[in-house]
Design a protein around this nucleic acid. Structure first.
Lengths: 229, 229
DNA sequence: CACAAAGCAGAGCACTGCTCTTGCATGAGA
DNA sequence: TCTCATGCAAGAGCAGTGCTCTGCTTTGTG
């Protein structure tokens, strides 16, 4: 009665939030594979079956955590990027990329949840797409602004890819020059390739000064999508 | 007595191979998370506890499969690459990259096992390193040969990265020019970023003509490490 | 040929996700 | 204000998991 939604509904959202919090704690501590509904329930002082009133299955709980992780990463990147003056395109780009890396190092298990191998038999529902796209939107925004501003240098685009590039540009970033679309997607993949390799141990005994190397790589990446130095 | 190693040892290696084969079958069918020692034993007509005579734990079985997967991928890339004339550097590069993609699409679960998120609490032993390095060795070989041949164009290398680049070059590819080392590592990460994104669904509704896009991306990648067109 | 070692089966432990029934407390309408 | 339906938690139980321990049988070898 204290709120418009009624006491019952409010209690429900509170318990739901508490479950997600505890699940996130266990996720950070042990990883997605060891996330157990029973353990979450135990920690919250309830019985395991009670959790199924809030999440119909373990996968649904994971989906909720996935969306939260995408949003957490997206917000981190957006705020870091927003602190850079709009005219410094390359710095906007590198700062956004570095925010991805910093977030990933701070939340390795959540990163693995969203960018690692998908759980078998689990298909991420379409609900996750908007949250998942936030990082890409920031990167696209930088290139779009640079294109409107000083003008992007013409990127090469072989004839056989023209058709696909036009579709890509039309579908994901209508304001982007057609030539930039494939380069953007490739840069996007390299960014997460770099972060994933560092996080998942592939750089062990290969790259030691990770931060410096990463900064160099994303700077080159900015140039590869046509950002002026 | 029929062989030098003795009948007992031979039976042991045969059973070990049978276990790995069945495990690989289940891995391909259901993914690493659903690989169950009991199911493997059941399919082989033995009891679960008997498996522990061959693999001390589930993780040890996974390690064996990981090494096999790295070797399978490495061999696929090596043979595809060997079919290209030594002088066509860019084609050697793209063929090797495309072999990675083809293998990954044919063995998605094994790819996820070696390049996806690591199992929590599981650290890949150093035994896996030689097998894991085979793909990188092929790529390094192409750039090395191109450098000895027509000469690689000078890649830019900021002063602050010089030290790390020298260490990287010395440690992983002594014959490589120092300037090429960071570019190689970045290209390596992008290659697996691209393949991973396609395999793990990140390209859904973003890239449709995957093969064409991939070919374009790895061609650009070859140029980025200095290979002449 | 005898013996020790290797391999096997089976029971059992402590878990997991998930389902079903039962009983209780509480919020909402008469 | 009282009643009643609804939301929720509890607990037992099912089928499965990785892993261990105890005996028993097979088998290669000195």
């Amino acid at each position: 009665m204290s709120t418009a939604e009624g006491a019952r509904a409010r209690a429900r959202t509170e318990v739901t939030a508490a479950i997600k919090d505890e699940a996130r704690r266990q996720l950070a501590a042990e990883g997605a594979a060891k996330l157990s509904l029973r353990a979450v329930a135990r920690e919250l002082g309830m019985v395991s079956s009670a959790l199924y009133r809030y999440f119909p299955s373990r996968d649904d709980l994971l989906t909720a955590l996935i969306i939260d992780a995408y949003d957490s990463l997206g917000e981190a990147v957006e705020t870091a990027h927003a602190a850079v003056p709009a005219g410094e395109f390359l710095r906007r780009w590198t700062v956004a990329c570095e925010a991805v890396r910093v977030w990933a190092l701070a939340h390795p298990h959540e990163y693995a949840l969203i960018y690692g191998s998908p759980v078998p038999g689990y298909a991420a529902p379409a609900t996750t797409i908007p949250s998942a796209a936030r990082v890409a939107m920031v990167l696209i925004g930088v290139v779009r602004d640079a294109d409107r501003g000083p003008g992007l240098p013409g990127l090469s685009l072989p004839a056989e890819l023209r058709c696909e590039a036009e579709r890509m540009a039309a579908e994901i970033a209508p304001e982007l020059p057609v030539e930039a679309a494939p380069a953007m997607v490739a840069a996007w993949a390299e960014l997460f390739g770099l972060v994933g390799f560092e996080l998942f141990g592939q750089f062990e005994q290969v790259v030691l000064d990770r931060e410096r190397f990463f900064r160099h790589a994303v700077t080159r990446l900015g140039a590869s999508v046509g950002l002026p130095a």
